[in-house]
Each structure stands twice: as C-alpha cells, then as structure tokens.
Simulated scan of single mutants.
Amino acid sequence: MSETRDGWAGTIKGRPTMGQAAERSRTTSMKDIIAFTEMTGDRNPVHYDQALAEKTAFGKLIVQGGVTTGILNAVVAEDLPGPGTVFLGVEWKFVKAVGVDETITGRVEVAEVRADKPICKLLTEVRDSQGNVCLTGTATTYTMPLQGL
C-alpha cells in the first residue's frame, strides 16, 4: 500500500482549501501604461491618444490588458496560493476595458486543489469600482516549496 505524498509540504502558506478566496485593489494610472510600454513596446494609440480613444467604443484612454491582469499576478503570488506560486495556464475573457485612474479589484477563488502536487485551479476576475466585471476566467497555478531553501 503506497502512502499519499503531501505535495504542499514546504510551501509557505500550505494547502489552500476549496472556496478560499483573496483579493486586492489598486488604482490604475498613466504611469502603468508607460511602464508596460517600456516592458513590451505596446504603443497602441488607445492607450496614449486621448482624442482618438474618446472616439472609440471605449470612449476613454484604456490601460493595456497586461496592466489589468497584473493585479491577478499580485493576488496569486502574495495572497492565494501565495509566495512561490506561478501560473501554468490561464483562460481569461476581457469583458470591459479598464480606463486610466480607475480602481480595480482582482479576486481569485480556489476551485480545485491537488493533494499530490501543489497545483490549484482558480476562478479569477477583475472588477471596477462600480462592481462591473472587466475580466473573468480561470487560472491553473503551481506553488513551489520555498521553506528550507
């Protein structure tokens, strides 16, 4: 008879539980757009040209999608599952664009947890300050054991 190994041994926060959730909020800014452009080269005019952006379906300057999803990186790496966690895969749908100077809240909820490996499936979403969903989907994560390194 084989013993079941606890794949979460050595992870900083331990094994998450089904239904456990965490969230973070932040306000976007033009600095986010500039920093993201410096990292990626994304100079889409809907991020920089106010007059043009106001004529689009968005009606305003918007931040890059990577700025919107970035809040989920922070929740996953800092809160749930926590330090040492990386994304293995994501399925995200952008539902509503996020504008400059908008407060967004990223939320993750544990949908599945493997016992043998530190892998989770998370329900993910980003909402604006009015509670409108801007992004929705799922993410699969792996949490590296960091204790004892």
Results as ranks from 00 to 15, higher is better:
residue 111 A to H: 06
residue 86 V to L: 15
residue 16 P to E: 00
residue 24 R to Y: 05
residue 82 G to F: 10
residue 146 L to E: 13
residue 81 P to F: 04
residue 49 D to H: 08
residue 82 G to N: 11
residue 81 P to L: 04
residue 69 T to G: 13
residue 60 K to Q: 15
residue 25 S to V: 00
residue 14 G to I: 00
residue 89 G to Q: 10
residue 42 D to N: 15
residue 53 A to S: 13
residue 82 G to S: 06
residue 80 L to P: 08
residue 129 S to N: 03
residue 147 Q to A: 09
residue 25 S to C: 04
residue 83 P to N: 13
residue 103 T to M: 11
residue 149 L to I: 10
residue 44 N to Q: 13
residue 118 P to Q: 06
residue 106 G to L: 05
residue 144 M to A: 15
residue 64 Q to Y: 03
residue 58 F to M: 10
residue 84 G to K: 15
residue 98 V to S: 04
residue 105 T to C: 05
residue 22 A to P: 07
residue 80 L to M: 11
residue 12 I to N: 00
residue 94 F to Q: 08
residue 85 T to L: 06
residue 31 K to P: 07
residue 126 V to K: 01
residue 131 G to A: 07
residue 84 G to R: 13
residue 67 V to M: 05
residue 33 I to A: 11
residue 32 D to Y: 08
residue 72 L to S: 01
residue 107 R to K: 15
residue 38 E to I: 09
residue 56 T to P: 11
residue 67 V to W: 02
residue 112 E to S: 11
residue 83 P to I: 08
residue 112 E to I: 04
residue 146 L to H: 04
residue 105 T to V: 01
residue 123 L to C: 05
residue 21 A to V: 09
residue 50 Q to M: 14
residue 3 E to K: 13
residue 68 T to N: 04
residue 1 M to L: 10
residue 142 Y to T: 06
residue 58 F to R: 07
residue 93 K to N: 06
residue 23 E to A: 09
residue 83 P to V: 06
residue 98 V to A: 03
residue 41 G to T: 14
residue 17 T to A: 09
residue 128 D to I: 05
residue 123 L to M: 11
residue 146 L to C: 09
residue 143 T to C: 04
residue 114 R to G: 11
residue 41 G to F: 12
residue 17 T to K: 12
residue 126 V to T: 01
residue 98 V to L: 02
residue 10 G to N: 13
residue 128 D to A: 12
residue 67 V to N: 10
residue 68 T to Y: 11
residue 98 V to F: 04
residue 43 R to D: 10
residue 133 V to A: 05
residue 43 R to E: 13
residue 72 L to M: 03
residue 111 A to D: 10
residue 102 E to V: 00
residue 138 T to E: 05
residue 65 G to R: 07
residue 40 T to K: 03
residue 105 T to K: 00
residue 88 L to Y: 02
residue 23 E to F: 03
residue 44 N to I: 12
residue 10 G to A: 14
residue 82 G to H: 03
residue 90 V to G: 00
residue 67 V to R: 00
residue 89 G to D: 09
residue 4 T to S: 13
residue 104 I to H: 06
residue 147 Q to I: 11
residue 124 T to E: 02
residue 128 D to P: 02
residue 88 L to F: 06
residue 107 R to F: 01
residue 113 V to D: 02
residue 36 F to M: 07
residue 11 T to S: 12
residue 88 L to I: 05
residue 58 F to S: 12
residue 123 L to T: 14
residue 13 K to N: 15
residue 42 D to A: 07
residue 48 Y to C: 09
residue 17 T to S: 14
residue 57 A to R: 14
residue 136 T to F: 05
residue 138 T to L: 13
residue 74 A to R: 03
residue 3 E to M: 04
residue 47 H to C: 11
residue 23 E to W: 10
residue 146 L to N: 06
residue 125 E to M: 07
